[in-house]
Structure formats: C-alpha cells, structure tokens
Nucleic acid binder design. Structure first.
Length: 263
DNA sequence: CTTCTCACA
DNA sequence: TGTGAGTA
C-alpha cells in the first residue's frame, strides 16, 4: 500500500481545487513527490505541509510568484516582518469595514426613523455641528454634473454624507459637508424644527419650504436664519428617482446653563 | 479517474 | 489568480 495520495485526494484534504494545485506547480511552488507510471502526480506528507504553508502565505496576501522565494530562502526574521506587515494591512482593512458597518447602521436607522413618523414635522435637538465648505453657487443656478466637476473639491464618500445647503443672506447658496473639528461654519446647538421629504422635481422643494414657514408660523415657532436644507442621497436608495431632503431651522437656541451663583 | 490546453474573468 | 470546458 502506497503512502502517497493523488491530486484529488490532496485537493479534498486541503479544501482547494485540483486546478489550484496544478497552478501552484506551474508557478514552481509545489512539486509532487513523484509521478506515477500513468503520469499521475503523487503527493506525500511533505507536500501536505508545503501546501498548508502556501495557503497560509496566500491568506496573508503574498503573491504566488513570491511564495517560491519565501519558502526557499526566507529567514525567521523575514517571516516575522511578513507577518507584521500583513497584521497592519488587516488592521486598516478592519477599520475600513467598521466604517462601512457604521454607515450601514446609520442608513438603516435614519430610514426607519424617516418611515416611522406620521407627522412630517418634528422638533429635533441638534448638538453643535461643524461644517466644511464644499461648493458655493448662485441660488439661481441649478446644480449640475458639470458644475460639480469644475468647481467642487472632491470629498471621499461624498454621497454617503449629509450635504447641508445654506443660503447666507445674499443670493449665494453654500454647500457644506459635516466635519469633526470646527470648520468653515457651525450650526449652534438647540431645538430645530424639521421636516423630511422625498422630492421628485426641483419646484416641489419651493412649495415644501413655503409650507415649512407656514407651519412654523401656525405653531408660533420663531424661526431663526438660516434655513438649512440637508440632502441625504443615501436615503434615496430606498425610493426610485426621488431625492431625500430634510429642512431644518433653529427655533430655540441652547441657552448656556447659568453658572451657580457661587460666593 | 487523470492529463493538458485554451479561453475567460 | 485562478476557473470552466473540452480532450485524450
């Protein structure tokens, strides 16, 4: 009874395809123990261990080409460096996935929040928000792809963020993205009147704005400038060709808690 | 069952 | 960096 195994037995044992084993051979990283009389490749324990090592290095992202050099001439120290390097890569990948996870959770949460309200008007508390200027445009101008390409500075994951449209007194509309540190502009903390809508046409927006002011007046809310329009393109995922907007305006600024009247 | 080659993502 | 089809 031979102690060696055929390629399909090795493939099954190591959970890889027969093809892949032959591919490794073609690249010179895994040679069979010997060829049987019928030209079948035969493998022994040595090859089992070798294949295990190859698969490990592949998992670490080492190209098959370089695995040959690894296995023939690497010192323990060089393997240490290799492992350290892939550990760093895995950490950044982990970070990327966590950010994605965070974003997905946020989308689901906001979508649920949006659908759950029957009353389109809400009062919301907002903490101080820092905004970074992204694009300035005339209020008459329509936002176009051309305009974005020419004027806007690129922002990674732009359409995963909340874009704030703010009209600052004049006829200029400035588009901002949120930022961690104090930026070009900040929104004070306080209570905001808010309404969220799905919009088909641009002119619908003007009606919604009029309704917003009318509602505020009817409820005796004193609206403070500026009116904030927030576009959340990622929420438009859920509705074909409709854009998700939220209108906000400060109605009750946060008053600094009085200092205790000490001494 | 294996082998090899070729086209294809 | 592999996979799938077809062949002998």
């Amino acid at each position: 009874m031979k102690s060696e195994i055929t390629i399909s037995e090795l493939a099954k044992l190591m959970n890889v395809s027969v093809h892949q084993i032959r591919y490794f051979e073609e690249k010179g990283v895994l040679l069979p123990a010997y060829l049987d009389n019928n030209q079948y490749r035969m493998y022994s324990m040595d090859q089992v261990y070798q294949l295990a090592h190859i698969l490990l290095l592949r998992k670490l992202g080492v190209p098959v080409q370089s695995i040959k050099e690894c296995m023939t001439s690497y010192s323990a120290d060089q393997y240490g460096q290799l492992l350290n390097r892939s550990l760093r890569e895995i950490n950044t990948e982990l970070l990327r996935l966590q950010e994605l996870q965070h974003f997905i959770t946020k989308v689901l949460h906001e979508q649920k929040n949006f659908q759950s309200h029957t009353n389109p008007y809400q009062i919301k508390w907002r903490d101080t928000t820092y905004l970074a200027r992204w694009l300035e445009m005339d209020s008459q101008t329509k936002l176009s792809a051309k305009l974005l390409a020419e004027r806007a500075k690129s922002v990674p994951n732009l359409f995963e963020s909340d874009i704030h449209y703010i009209e600052d007194g004049s006829s200029t509309i400035t588009l901002y993205t949120e930022t961690e540190a104090p930026g070009d502009f900040s929104l004070p903390s306080g209570k905001y009147l808010s309404t969220q809508r799905l919009i088909n046409e641009d002119d619908e927006l003007e009606q919604v704005i009029e309704q917003f002011y009318a509602y505020a007046a009817a409820q005796s809310y004193v609206i403070q400038e500026p009116l904030i329009l927030i576009e959340r393109s990622y929420l438009s995922l859920f509705s074909q060709s409709q854009l998700h907007y939220e209108l906000q305006a400060l109605i009750e600024p946060h008053t600094n808690s009085e200092r205790g009247n000490g001494t």
